[in-house]
Design a protein around this nucleic acid. Sequence first.
DNA 1: CCAGTTATTGAACAACTTGTTGAATAAATT
DNA 2: AATTTATTCAACAAGTTGTTCAATAACTGG
Lengths: 200, 200
Amino acid sequence: MKQADRNAKTQQIIKEAFIDLINEKGFNNLTVSDITRAAGVSRGTFYVHYTDKYELLTKIEDELVANITHALSENLDEPLTKHTAEEISGSTYRVFNKALNYVDSERITMRALFSPNGHPQFFNRIKNLVDVLFTDQLTANHGRFSDALPIDYTKEIALNSLLNIVRHWLDKDNPETPDELADILMRSRFIAPHELITFE
Amino acid sequence: MKQADRNAKTQQIIKEAFIDLINEKGFNNLTVSDITRAAGVSRGTFYVHYTDKYELLTKIEDELVANITHALSENLDEPLTKHTAEEISGSTYRVFNKALNYVDSERITMRALFSPNGHPQFFNRIKNLVDVLFTDQLTANHGRFSDALPIDYTKEIALNSLLNIVRHWLDKDNPETPDELADILMRSRFIAPHELITFE
DNA sequence: CCAGTTATTGAACAACTTGTTGAATAAATT
DNA sequence: AATTTATTCAACAAGTTGTTCAATAACTGG
């Protein structure tokens, strides 16, 4: 085995043990000793690769963010060349679908980080990512559908609905396929949430 | 000063220092020593009142949950005696208004706990609270408005929209009054969030 | 006002985690 | 086979944890 592969393999073992431990006891309650014990690796080895558990977390998150950004951006400029409602809708579906398929491939890690025992800042980072990528569409449509609700609240509703659906999906034991969830996300856009909370 | 008052005062000083520190460095990064130093109190005193920082957190949360439950429940049975749409709508508004006024009175604490550096489990606890209290209304209306979206996703959208609006409101520097936010919550019920995320 | 109860203080304790270092060993490279 | 690189293991000081205890301070009831 090559040196590079050897490093990669060690780091992979550490990462997997780390994600397992986040699910077991939460990021904040796990120690570097916990990680190395679970990974079957010396504590010294950990500190060769990472300065602390926060850097390990950051490196994992950075990779996820880069790939999600890529998946979301890839089809994002397409709409400008599309004209019919069907073309636009299909394009939106493909953006969701592509991103969800990647998220699904990192399901265990994503679920761990999105969980209450994971890293709330990571959820916010993804939220900010989606915000920036979709911000033009958001502001452009605001006013047409919003009934003059303040723009900041409108954005909160839209972003949180989208991302909490994904979070809920990640938490499920028998989740829908990424394709099915993309479909649910498409349909969810036409539902006013609080119509469902009334006293009728 | 009476003994009971003396205890209450000490605990209040500790609680205030604790909330300040959550905002400064986050719950997970603060130590008991940090709290007692900030509170100007001996570390021994802390351990007389609380076994650790988790118990302190829990006691604060329990009080908030009890009061929010009270505020939400008080007007919740009214609708059964109401008949017109205006009566029902007014009743809903009063439930929101009452709860929001209490939350506003505990704004600094609520914001600290709801923040990413606070306690995500507390947000989930409130979410569960609202879920249980409104669950009858939720299921009753499902199907009429949902376009056959799976019930679990419908609930996620409704609960997260409601609570993230409140969270966003708590984070604001110049927030609306509780009355104004109750109005925003009422109006937000008729907005389909993802209509705003399209590629048109 | 005094004696008894209760709260606070400050110091000490062992156990644990942290991040660092260095020497020995093991594995890959050339 | 000699060199570079990765891993291991042990030791280190510094900080936190939760507990204990004796001394001090503050309230309480008579």
